[in-house]
Write a protein that binds this DNA or RNA. Structure first.
Lengths: 334, 334
DNA sequence: CTGAAAGCGCTTACAG
DNA sequence: CTGAAAGCGCTTACAG
């Protein structure tokens, strides 16, 4: 079926020039409506498909966006970022763009090796999905194509970022616990691991402050080491009545741990998560959590990176996408 | 940093022609070693990056592969295909290729609407990941770029396919159950839903036949409707001693259901799954299952589609990738 | 070993 | 309203 029909073939067929065909097919001015219609009809009849490569060369744009995800966020039990990528990829199509995924291996990250899509000039811009090492940020910052951080940020550089509202999400979730009568509330998450964990912690802390509840360092519990690998979570000797976990997966682990120790959730202890991912409903009882608006995260990123491509000096700073609390049965009123 | 350095810039810098630069950078014959080294040094110094778009236009290749996944396989609790895509995408880079993901919406599938990457000539070939409707297969079959089915096949068309060894996997798993003393073994999976479910069923059936165990129709249990949506699984009145489930997620549901009815797994009833995905270890007890060799599935697909691109009439037929049984604690000896 | 010429398929700026 | 010319950056086939 229709091997390699070009504008020239259509032009020859009707006896016009390729210029006219190009104008007609792209709805540009300067072709009579009648001729335009005829060209379009013939094009479709001949099974014409644009050669976007030729267009790309002419315009100096690839119509591709590179989406970079550090390998450590793509383990068998973490599909959130892959899903975000999926949304981005789907959303980009509406703009005639495509998303090319690059999983950044830990060794490349260490060695500050830029992805092949960069050296191949395969993309017009990059979305970095997930916290990445500082040195790597620096080299990405130095390259020419525009870049955007997604789901994290770094204050020492002036790169635009799209993040979900970790701070207010955790703040409101903690407020909710307090309204349910809790005052002994722990936070689970290693504060130096990612900016998300840090911001969620600060939201939790703000809620405590507003309610004049003292922060207890022994109730701020590490969940992962500096490589991002999960630790065995240590339940404090003096049990709080509620745990604010920095993500659903960790909430799932906390619930398992507590149940293993004989506690009933939420009767003996309440647990909340963050993300509303698969772990929220795998946990029994299902978790009260914060739903990140993934579609909007994707849409906002797409619009930001595309406008940075079309208008190189565009700056957005940090764009925050709101989440919402999903109420389920992991919290008891006391 | 280095905006748009071209071969011409390098050529001008040294005072040679672009032809020589091209030959040097691509390690082609016809440049003295000395000059080649000098050109490479200058290129790297100037921060030269190839313009693959120009190369693509010249060669008529995009160096992209389209990976199409039907939307219904990408729900929040199904990440298997996304992971396969990730493997493919990673593996393609070693060949200078990239994978462009296209999620085929159910409406496009219905309307037999080909993906935009097709009309945009964005890819040199397609990998169809996951069972797709017959009419859609027909239209994909009719297009010019080579296509490959991954993880399913269709015998009425002559399209190459890479599949995991569903038949022998289920066969060996059932043999194992029988060796553990089971003779009352049910199969869970809707036989007309996908070729995988069908083949796994036939492997199970072959094992029964070999052991002279009669197939009981009431022990072949539906798990999904014709749209692929999960049904509430009906546990038969007369309980078998073991369930062979067509995938881990369904095994997880079966275990939940049985436990909800008061049965202990594996003491009262054994359950096995297939895939060794996240559900295998989320299920308590962890599932004995068949691990699909995802990396090899990806590698084989990559090699197949690339050789179909370079040698258009290459045919492979159906390539089967072996799996292996993972023994865990969901099976009891009786 | 080195380079001038042609061409991949498109689009833009300009001329008629 | 229509088209001839130029050019995007590369590579191949050919000539020297």
């Amino acid at each position: 079926m229709n091997k390699n029909i070009t504008m020239k073939d259509i032009a020859d067929q009707i006896g016009v020039s390729t210029v006219t065909v190009s104008k007609a097919l792209n709805d540009k001015e300067g072709v009579s409506d009648e001729l335009k219609a005829r060209i379009k009809a013939i094009a479709s009849e001949m099974g014409y498909r644009v050669n976007t490569v030729a267009r790309s060369m002419r315009e100096g744009l690839t119509y591709n966006i590179g989406v970079i995800i550090p390998e450590r966020f793509t383990g068998p039990d973490q599909s959130f970022y892959l899903r975000v990528y999926q949304e981005i990829s789907k959303g980009l199509e509406d703009y005639g763009y495509y998303g090319i995924l690059h999983i950044l291996s830990s060794s490349d990250e260490q060695a500050q090796q830029l992805p092949r899509i960069y050296y191949d000039r395969k993309v017009d811009g990059f979305i970095l999905l997930g916290q990445i090492g500082k040195p790597y940020i620096e080299i990405m910052h130095a390259i020419e194509p525009p870049i955007l951080f997604l789901d994290f940020y770094d204050d020492h550089s002036d790169i635009d970022a799209v993040v979900s509202d970790n701070f207010y999400g955790a703040y409101e979730l903690t407020n909710f616990l307090i309204r349910q009568g809790h005052r002994n509330i722990a936070y689970v998450g290693s504060l130096h691991a990612t900016s998300s964990i840090q911001d969620r912690f600060l939201g939790y802390y703000k809620s405590l402050l507003e309610h004049h509840i003292a922060l207890r360092q022994d109730w701020v519990i590490n969940d992962r080491n500096e490589h991002g690998n999960y630790l065995d979570i240590e339940i404090p000797d003096e049990l709080p009545t509620a745990f604010v976990c920095n993500c659903d997966q960790v909430a799932y682990l906390v619930v398992q741990k507590l149940q293993g120790m004989g506690y009933r959730i939420p009767d003996d202890c309440s647990v909340v998560g963050f993300d509303n991912d698969i772990y929220a409903t795998l946990t029994v009882p299902h978790l009260t959590t914060v739903e990140v608006n993934m579609k909007q995260l994707a849409q906002t990123s797409i619009q930001s990176i595309l406008s940075k491509i079309s208008t190189p000096d565009t700056k957005f700073g940090r764009i925050v996408v709101k989440g919402k609390i999903i109420y389920r049965s992991s919290v008891a009123k006391i």
